[in-house]
Write a protein that binds this DNA or RNA. Structure first.
Lengths: 282, 282
DNA sequence: CACATTATGTGCGCAATGCGCACAGTCAAG
DNA sequence: CTTGACTGTGCGCATTGCGCACATAATGTG
């Protein structure tokens, strides 16, 4: 097949343009292969999980080991080392999460005695940036960096409401709405209406949709340009408060906190909102 | 099997063996180029900081953008996106830090009304895995994932005391002891004695060595095999408590917490202890 | 206002790089 | 023992990613 490529800018079929550095993607996929369920992996397991040859998996693991990101034990089992935190935390500290956002969340927790969270939108998910948990037994085990589907959370709804018009449509069109509980709204039109409500009212209240027994209310955090940059919420047990009570007691404190949080967040470039294929051809 | 040394274990001049995937190292260095001080970088800045050609920096940035780790704004400035957290948090959740360790720290903070920290050793640094800060004004701005030199901290001293004999010598031999305050112990022999004390006593007390006004006491967290896997400390202001008072009030609660923390930490493969963190930008 | 100056994006030829096959050694189970 | 599912490693070859070089756009300076 001399079907050599003259220089097609859109790569043929395999899917990646000429400038794409495949080795980086493969290397990162090796790091991601380590999950909370599987903290230790062998070369073969990594190869299987990443769909690459054993020789390749081994090369990447050895490279990562030399760089200090993974370690091997005598039994040839690989695991992550603390150095991987270096990769992610430049991001959090660039947002001044610890110095600026956390104190605000803690104050809000103290005022309301409820768990509070700060999150951003990334792809179709919300990502927790910081949280302040009440002493009450944790109802859901969420952690900084964790992801949840945006459509079933109060944080997600207020942030979806802040997307440019077309972006929301595109998002709805390609996101499968799975029912996480019997109460999860999975009808696209109903969801769209709820998101519109959230945009109009400036808050979202969601009960029992991400998990039974969880109720939460969220408001957007606006950046200097007035765009929705993030969201804060208060999360509690649905037995404790009714929806109207949540609004009554928590909406104003939340809004005050959101105002305080604004300066903590730099203006983030807008989410690509289209992960797989995108055409930005100048 | 340390085979012969035909030519591959000591690679030619660049210093990397044949199996080393250079593109992964370069790609990761692009991620690390984003610091808290510089949340936004242009292609040229990244090229300069990573000492690679502009073309290469651009390839990596575009690759990372397609993968969702970075974003470009209209002004061609790149910044990290929340997805980078995915890389680091698999590690924390693999240790069950959030679910198991944090509650213990919080309980300790409640009992003592002081800030508590959990850290591991990595290279010559301690890395904070989790912390529970007291409401008292934060004296030092430390964050999960942050690093501090091990030799000047209580956490570091108890963990250094847990290293195998030879490893400590090697570590001392190659680690420059910089004075961070006038009180920092920089004499290797005095430091070695202090580390030995920490090993014998099962705790380390350090005052004003990492920063003036900070005093802390740390104890090791042992894994199932009895090895030092991590360390917990209580950190306060040196004006508040004297050393003996710290020991008197906090040592026992700390030891109890350390026992509770043990199951939270899997046995970590021992730190290579060889690669001193480097890779500073020119 | 034209001229440096320095940033950007992109094509292309070429060699080094990283690929995966294939072989060898190791441990456990049957 | 045989079998099978693992490891580590050498090596030839095609690919991949490299950086030069050029075009262009945005800055600043006389």
């Amino acid at each position: 097949m001399s079907s050599d490529r003259p220089d097609d800018d859109i790569a043929a079929d395999a899917g990646q343009p000429r400038w794409f550095v495949a080795s980086l993607e493969r290397g990162l996929s090796v790091l991601l292969a380590f999950g909370s369920d599987t903290p230790e992996l062998t070369v073969g397991e990594v190869a299987r999980r990443t769909a690459m040859s054993r020789a390749a998996a081994r090369r990447f693991l050895m490279t990562l080991e030399r760089l200090g990101y993974v370690a091997v034990d005598p039994k040839q089992r690989y695991s992550l080392r603390p150095k991987v935190l270096d990769l992610g935390f430049a991001f959090l500290s660039s947002l001044n999460v610890e110095a600026l956002a956390l104190p605000v969340l803690k104050a809000l927790t103290r005022e309301t005695t409820e768990t509070t969270n700060l999150a951003m939108l990334d792809g179709g998910d919300i990502v927790y940036l910081a949280r302040s948990v009440a002493y009450r037994p944790l109802h859901m085990s969420v952690h900084t960096g964790d992801r949840l589907p945006a459509y079933a959370t109060s944080l997600g709804r207020v942030m979806l409401a802040g997307l440019p018009a077309g972006a929301l449509d595109a998002w709805l069109a390609r996101t499968p709405l799975r029912a996480l509980t019997p109460h999860t709204v999975t009808d696209p039109e109903r969801l769209r209406a709820l998101i519109a409500d959230a945009g109009r009212d400036g808050y979202a209240l969601v009960a029992d949709e991400i998990a039974v027994g969880i109720i939460s209310i969220a408001v957007p955090v606006l950046d200097a340009a007035g765009k929705v940059a993030a969201a804060v919420n208060i999360s509690s047990q649905s037995g404790r408060w009714t929806g109207p009570e949540m609004i009554e007691r928590f909406l104003e404190p939340l809004r005050a906190a959101a105002r305080d949080l604004a300066p903590a967040l730099r203006a983030m470039p807008r989410p690509p909102a289209s992960p797989p294929t995108e055409g930005r051809t100048p």
